[in-house]
Amino acid sequence: MSEAAPRRWGFLPLLRWGEFGRRWRPEPLVAAGLAMFLALAAFAWLGPLFYTASPYAIHAHRLFLPPSLRHPLGTDDLGRSFLARMMYGGQPSLGVAIVGSVVAMLIGLGYGMTSGLSPPRLDKALMRLLDAILALPTLVLMIFFAAIVPLGPLSLILLLGLVSWPGLARIVRNEVLAYKERDYVLAARQYGAGTGYLARRHLLRAMFPIVVVNATFTVADLILTLAGLSFLGLGIQPPTPSWGGLLGNGSNLAITGSWWLILFPGVAILLAILSLNLVGQGLLNRLEGR
């Protein structure tokens, strides 16, 4: 196997989009968004290595301290270091959303490809079923599930994944319909390739760009949904911090004038969503602009 390594990854259309293969230039939006998002992720996961205060240690003698050199983001209503809580709070907010979006992506991809490759009648039935699922409002569904399932990162990942796949499934199905009439797919069918083989070999990789773009937007969406749930007290349960939970807590304490308890989690959520939308939009531009 004398193949150079890049060949093995040549299918990654992100790095090799047709003519862009040999001279990949980063899309400015993608680069900016990615840098922002990585900075946030580094803040959440690497930050605690440098700023070692505990997010749980309660200090009754320093409640509601505004940001200062000693407490960079101030302290909260129990005197806990808000910087530490912001760092640890980023982990579930980002982590659950990312993994949840992967779950949604896998389900959506599977459902969409199955539907697209099914005989027309079954395909139609599957799509109508999808319409029915799409008609259910996500947040209401989440509140319903949250009421009957014990809440933890794992159950949240599954819940978020389970409610956010239908959009992707529909996109994938439509892409499959377009791609399965391509001559190269017909050629493969002509010499006897079965449906499963076509799906694995030819269609899956054709789905890659659209799925990546969609997954990016889904992560942003899930961060917001998760923040909304935490805000309502249905997400990550205290005392474990999460950005949505911190924001909810802060807004309850708004009357104390502790602006930092609202501003920082709000900005963190905003930046996370903004960065992902930049990445998604940049990829979409590249995808459609070709």
């Binding site: 060949r7 259309p13 090799r16 391509r182 001559d183 190269y184 030819h202 990789r205």
Partner: peptide
């Protein structure tokens, strides 16, 4: 153009 898969050598 359409007879070949653009993402395979």
């Amino acid at each position: 153009l359409a007879a070949l898969n653009p993402s395979l050598p």
